[in-house]
């Protein structure tokens, strides 16, 4: 039986900290541990962007991380989705007007899903990942449908 056509594959996630306060990062890890248990959806944190379908990006992108964020994005194979987690990743949040920050992630790489909150609750992060999943599957379908180049 097919529960949902989007639940066919498991989703691998890479987590990238671009200078966040760590608040969002521990909430992401909390999302993986027994109370919230992201893994029951087949969502798994992986250690390299080359294995990932989704990038979970936190933080306001510091000067030195700027180039690295772009590189990690490029290393992630297509089709991919990017989730900006936290207020400082989506808009700069408390960290506005600094000389060393880009302000938000979408100024550096394209972002598909925004999860606001400072930090967002694990439930919100899980919801964000599921949103990205749906988007990703649609992307995959359209890629498959498109004639090979």
């Amino acid at each position: 039986m097919r529960l949902n056509k989007y639940f066919e594959r498991s989703l691998w996630v890479f987590h990238l900290n671009t200078g966040s306060c760590n608040g969002c990062d521990i909430e992401i890890v909390a999302g993986l541990t027994p109370r919230y248990d992201l893994e029951r959806f087949g969502i798994k944190l992986v250690g390299s962007p080359k294995h990932a379908d989704v990038l979970l990006v936190t933080g306001p992108v510091t000067g030195r991380m700027l180039d690295r964020v772009k590189r990690v994005y490029e290393q992630t194979p297509d089709p991919k989705a990017v989730i900006a987690v936290g207020a400082c990743g989506t808009s700069g949040g408390v960290f506005y007007n600094s000389y060393n920050l880009s302000g938000s992630i979408d100024k550096v790489i394209p972002v598909d899903v925004y999860v606001p909150g400072c930090p967002p609750r694990p439930e919100a992060i899980i919801n964000g990942v599921l949103q990205a999943w749906i988007k990703l599957e649609k992307l995959r379908e359209s890629m498959e449908a498109a004639p090979a180049r």
């Binding site: 900290n17 200078g19 510091t62 030195r64 991380m65 960290f95 600094s98 000389y99 060393n100 920050l101």
Partner: peptide, 11 residues
């Protein structure tokens, strides 16, 4: 160190 420098004291 220094990759996470956000300039908080400056802000």
């Amino acid at each position: 160190p220094g990759d996470n420098h956000r300039g908080i004291e400056f802000m």
